[in-house]
Design a protein around this nucleic acid. Sequence first.
DNA 1: GTCAATGCAAACTCTTTGCAATCTG
DNA 2: CAGATTGCAAAGAGTTTGCATTGAC
Lengths: 156, 156
Amino acid sequence: MIPDPESFEERTIRLRDGLKRAGIKVTHQRLEIFRELVRSGDHPDAETIFRGVRERVPMVSLDTVYRTLWLLVDLGLISTLGPPKDRVRFDANTRAHHHFVCTMCGATRDFYCIEFDRLNLPVEVEESGAVNTTQVEAKGLCRECAGKAVQPSPSE
Amino acid sequence: MIPDPESFEERTIRLRDGLKRAGIKVTHQRLEIFRELVRSGDHPDAETIFRGVRERVPMVSLDTVYRTLWLLVDLGLISTLGPPKDRVRFDANTRAHHHFVCTMCGATRDFYCIEFDRLNLPVEVEESGAVNTTQVEAKGLCRECAGKAVQPSPSE
DNA sequence: GTCAATGCAAACTCTTTGCAATCTG
DNA sequence: CAGATTGCAAAGAGTTTGCATTGAC
């Protein structure tokens, strides 16, 4: 089982480093919020992180959790699942299919590829649960956004 | 280019059929909301669908759009992107990785597979945009949910 | 000591719900 | 015609913001 390519300690150091490099203060709350997120195997929402952090930092408030998480997203130290700040989106396609997702605008288009419908997964995945289907998400810039050609803030 | 395995007309018929079979009335609004969703190549949120439908059914209201969309989701005629009714979820893992997602509780765990990081895509995908990375989402039941062993309503 | 960061509470946005009027089958 | 469905408006949830106090550097 390969749970993590980076240890807990390594990640904490990476966080401190990332914050300092951006000239941002390393507070107790930020550390604990990040650690709570790292510790959680699945990918929790803000409220779940909040509850976890509160056990060690009882004074922490939910809005600090939100602010910290978005700060870390902006710094590229963490990310969100799916398009950032999602509203619910709907899909009229009930067939097995895959998605092209624009990382800029979030536009998502279907494509088909039978091979992708049931990919051969690494054995460790079985530890998480029983897989029924696989779906590929191809991420990139859609034509419209590529046309705009406005590079978002390059982080490095 | 294989834009759609099913034509617009076929899908409309499928909708009528699905509604009737469930003993649910086929209203003008439901038809138009569904058609608007089918027409849209990317996967719109409720408000976008609302704006589109309103051009042809000016009286339609946003809450009807929501109600209809969730109705169709319940009937299995459409689906949502990502876990239904999502809050924003966060990911502390900045490395290339893939996800196991539980279709029941939404728990999402990372796994690693270098082959999946850059899959060979069908050529038509290029029409949507320039792909940078590929990410695999393996869907199934996590151990906890499998333990509960409560089968959700089997649709067929 | 200075200025960013926090906690609180109120605001905001997206989504859902209750009810009388309307429309489908 | 009966009962489901709609539109309206108001409520609910999740998330964000303004401001005085607290804490990191």
